[in-house]
Computed example of a mutant assay.
Amino acid sequence: MSRLTRSSAGNRRTRTWWVVLMTAVFCFLWQSAFVQADDSAARLHAKYQSLTQQLAHNQFQRPLYLESQELPSALKGDIYGVLNHPFAVVSGALNDPVRGPANWCDVLILHLNTKYCHASTGDSGTVLTVNIGKKTEESLSSSYRVQFQFRPVASTPDYFRVELTAATGPLSTKDYRIVLEAIPVGDNRTFIHLTYAYGYGTAGRFAMKTYLATIGSDKVGFSTTPDSSASDPQYIGGVRGLVERNTMRYYLAIEAYLGALASPADARLDKRLADWFDATEQYPRQLHEVSRDDYMQMKHNEYQRQQTAQ
């Protein structure tokens, strides 16, 4: 055998082993991802079972459970709830790597403080460019721009998890996370877990304290203080109340978005806006901010701006 023939045979063997190795690595990672998804689904099923009573009997008049945490330099809100939508519909709308980012923009824009959202894909992955501002109309130049990375973490026939993360935000806030995971709990119902969390530094802590000492001084959350009685509940305030209100607004935005999918395409925006506003008005002590007419007009204007601005 000539030296050239031996060299070609060696190259073929090298390529073959490389293909075998890469295939083995891919299979290992694929199996590992499914094992992790199965573990996460089992954990979420266990949580669903443990919340049976709370989901059936609560102050929200819907199958929902909310909890929050205040850490030394971070806030976190978690909502567990049952949606009257098939798992495939929820996953297809919010976890799909192609359609999901734009759909999330349609969810986020329902929140009073979201002034703009645009999804784009580039070398760094899929990004949601979101402007955060006041609860009333304002120009984009007056709002704060936050870049969320969109990442579908897990997707199986029985579980999905999608994460929106941003390293930095306004006024030294950081490590923003909006995380949604879900499992089917029947043919037409889906159990979801929504997390909204962020960290903050000195400037962020000062800004929140200023807000809570002035225009936000009478704002409360949904959790009650330990000394509350059934006849006269005392709701928590402060930063925990703040994160609970916003976590609830995002949850209700997901509900409103999914609820409008069955409507004709040209009617979905109005239905989403109306349903979100009506849902927030069920909790006026915590969530009422503006009139229905003002909200509808502001959001129509912001939605139209969202279609053209960059």
Rank of each mutant, 00 (worst) to 15 (best):
K134H: 15
N188L: 07
R240V: 08
T202V: 11
L171A: 10
R177D: 03
G201Y: 03
V179Y: 04
Q234N: 11
R240N: 15
S231D: 13
K115E: 11
Y200R: 04
H111S: 15
R161K: 15
R161T: 14
Y196F: 15
G169T: 10
R177I: 10
A203W: 07
S142V: 07
S228T: 15
H118E: 09
L140R: 01
L242S: 03
T190S: 03
S141Y: 05
V146C: 01
D218Y: 07
P184T: 10
G204N: 05
V185W: 02
T190F: 01
T210G: 07
I178G: 01
E163D: 15
N188P: 00
K174P: 03
P233H: 09
S143G: 07
K135N: 15
F160K: 00
G237A: 12
G221R: 01
V107E: 00
E163K: 08
D106C: 05
P184M: 05
V243Q: 00
T156C: 09
S172G: 03
D123E: 10
P170I: 09
H111D: 10
L171N: 07
G186A: 13
T121N: 07
Y144M: 14
S120W: 08
T214H: 14
G199T: 10
A154E: 08
T214Q: 05
P170E: 06
V185S: 00
I132G: 04
L164K: 01
K134V: 08
R240Y: 12
F191N: 00
D106Q: 09
P226D: 07
V220R: 01
T202E: 03
T168C: 05
K209Q: 14
A167D: 14
K174H: 12
C105Y: 04
T126Q: 08
I178H: 03
A166S: 15
F206P: 02
Y235A: 05
E181S: 09
A203L: 13
H193M: 05
I178M: 11
R240D: 11
K209D: 14
G204L: 03
L164P: 02
Y235H: 13
Y196P: 00
V130E: 00
C105I: 09
E163R: 12
F206Y: 05
G199F: 04
T224Q: 02
G186I: 11
F206T: 14
P157D: 03
Y144C: 06
S223T: 11
T225M: 13
H118Q: 04
T126S: 13
A182E: 02
A207R: 05
L171H: 03
S172F: 08
W104H: 02
F160P: 00
Q147H: 07
S120A: 15
W104E: 06
Q147R: 09
T136K: 11
F206G: 12
G201P: 04
S223C: 01
E163Y: 02
Q234M: 11
A166F: 05
Q149N: 15
A207E: 10
L110P: 00
D187K: 09
